[in-house]
Simulated scan of single mutants.
Amino acid sequence: MMVGELLQEIMQAIGEQAFNFDLPATTARLQTFLHDGHYHAFVATDESGTAAGFLTLYQSYALYAEGSFGTIPELYVRPAYRSHGTGKQLLATARAFGASKGWTRLEVTTPPLPAFERTLAFYEREGFAITGGRKLKTLLPKEMPHA
């Protein structure tokens, strides 16, 4: 559910339909990723056990990074829990997890700027530094069935 909330917030801020969110498909994808052990998810909860936010993480490899490192594809804190240390707590958990895996660093990409300047400021306060460039993507065609 929180993935949908995150994507909706991004799309509202940038004014375009940048994502297609399907809860059952996303849930199935998450279960597969977690089962395969290539994807890790951490959920922060409040005192009553209500989900306040989440962070996902996977292992990446690059020569420039001197080995393996962690990539954070999603970090979301529900609005009612922002500015209460929830995001900081999730990043602390990610750092500890990454260190236990022997990763050299964590990397994250912010949603589009300037709409998400506050997100950038949060990451900078948490010790992340801008490394330059911009995240780019291209869509690949779906694999054609073999005849």
Rank of each mutant, 00 (worst) to 15 (best):
L75G: 09
E117A: 15
A92E: 14
Q8W: 09
A94N: 01
G4Q: 03
V43L: 13
E107R: 13
A65D: 01
V108N: 00
H84P: 02
K137Y: 15
E126W: 14
L7S: 07
P111W: 01
R95M: 08
F69H: 13
L90D: 07
P114Q: 02
I14R: 01
R78L: 13
A147R: 12
A25V: 09
T131K: 15
L139N: 10
F97P: 01
K142W: 14
P73D: 07
P24I: 01
P145M: 02
E16W: 08
Y39L: 11
A51Q: 11
F54K: 00
L139R: 08
A99Q: 15
V43D: 09
T138D: 12
A25Y: 02
L140C: 03
H40C: 08
H40I: 06
L139S: 10
L90N: 08
L57G: 00
F69M: 07
R134H: 15
T109K: 05
S83A: 11
L106D: 08
Y81Q: 10
F97H: 10
R134D: 10
F116Y: 13
A13Q: 12
Y39W: 15
L106N: 05
M11Y: 00
F116V: 03
R95L: 06
G4L: 08
L91C: 03
E107N: 07
Q8Y: 07
T56C: 04
G87S: 02
Y39R: 07
G70L: 01
Q8T: 13
T109M: 08
A41N: 06
A121P: 03
A65N: 12
Q17H: 14
L91W: 06
T26I: 12
G132A: 15
T32W: 07
Q31F: 05
T71W: 08
Y64L: 14
E124Y: 06
E107V: 14
A52S: 09
Y81F: 15
V3T: 13
A129G: 12
H84A: 14
H84S: 10
G70P: 06
E47L: 09
H38K: 11
Y76H: 03
R78W: 03
L55Q: 04
E47Q: 11
A80Y: 01
L90V: 03
A44T: 02
M2T: 07
I130P: 10
L75D: 07
H40R: 14
F122I: 02
G37T: 02
L7R: 11
D46A: 07
M11A: 09
P73H: 03
G98L: 00
N20H: 11
S48A: 13
K135A: 15
Y64M: 15
K88H: 13
A65W: 06
L139T: 12
T110W: 09
I14C: 05
L57N: 00
Q17K: 13
Q59M: 09
I14T: 04
